[in-house]
Design a protein around this nucleic acid. Structure first.
Length: 212
DNA sequence: TCAGCGATTAACT
DNA sequence: GTTAATCGCTGAA
């Protein structure tokens, strides 16, 4: 097993959340919960650019019990419940009081496949195991309990294992599921690994068989 | 106070 | 393609 280097605080303090969303592709997201370790390569992200981004929960400085964690220091986990049942995991970035966040939409499973299958209630491996933000979070065991968790702590963190992608290997698109979010709904803030089947809403994935 | 809806998914037809 | 699952915020009573 490759060992990685936990991303330092400085990684998360960068000003440009869109650039950071791109930089997270290829990094490895790890959880260690109840003695069970699971990990996967980040393959799809979306940037939410703070108080000027009409698709962000923090648009116009909105601040509620739910999104309070977005105002914490970069390197904090923001987990919220969507549609009443899905836990969505975001990485908070930038300094305190600047509510930037990056939604992790998909991962490619690396470690703890058996645990992920169990958490997802599945018998067999398929691309639906960890693609889509609700599925990725559930496979990693991420729930509201981790809201506010420190990404430099011991429950959940992100590692650099030397995987990176060139501009040519990365595709960009508008963000998913924010059609009614006003002026910024078409901004190209979604990033995904072009040739990876481990992403959501990929036309090339349809009908594709598992090949591992 | 409460209806309406969302950074979604899976199981239907 | 359609729908049910049903938390938390918003905006209208």
């Amino acid at each position: 097993m490759t060992t990685g280097r936990k991303l330092p605080r400085s990684f998360y303090l960068h000003d440009d959340v869109v650039e950071l969303a791109r930089a997270l592709l290829g990094k490895v997201l790890v959880t260690e919960l109840e003695g069970k370790r699971t990990a996967g390569i980040i393959t799809e992200t979306e940037a939410y650019a703070g108080i000027n981004d009409s698709a962000s929960h923090a648009y116009q400085g909105r601040r509620t019990a739910r999104n309070e964690v977005m105002y914490a220091i970069g390197g904090t986990a923001y987990v919220y419940i969507n549609y009443g049942l899905h836990h969505l995991f975001n990485v908070v970035t930038n300094r305190e009081e600047i509510p930037h966040a990056i939604l992790i939409r998909s991962i490619e499973p690396l470690e703890g496949l058996d645990v992920m299958l169990e958490r997802r209630g599945k018998q067999t491996l398929s691309y639906t195991l960890t693609t889509g933000p609700g599925s990725a979070a559930r496979a990693l065991g991420i729930t509201k309990e981790l809201n506010g968790a420190d990404l430099l702590g011991h429950l959940i963190w992100i590692e650099d294992r030397g995987i990176s992608f060139s501009t040519r290997q990365i595709a960009t698109s508008p963000r998913i599921g924010i059609d009614s979010c006003g002026k910024d709904r078409l901004k190209p803030y979604r990033f995904l690994v072009k040739d990876s089947p481990w992403v959501s809403r990929s036309p090339q994935k349809l009908g594709q068989k598992m090949r591992l």
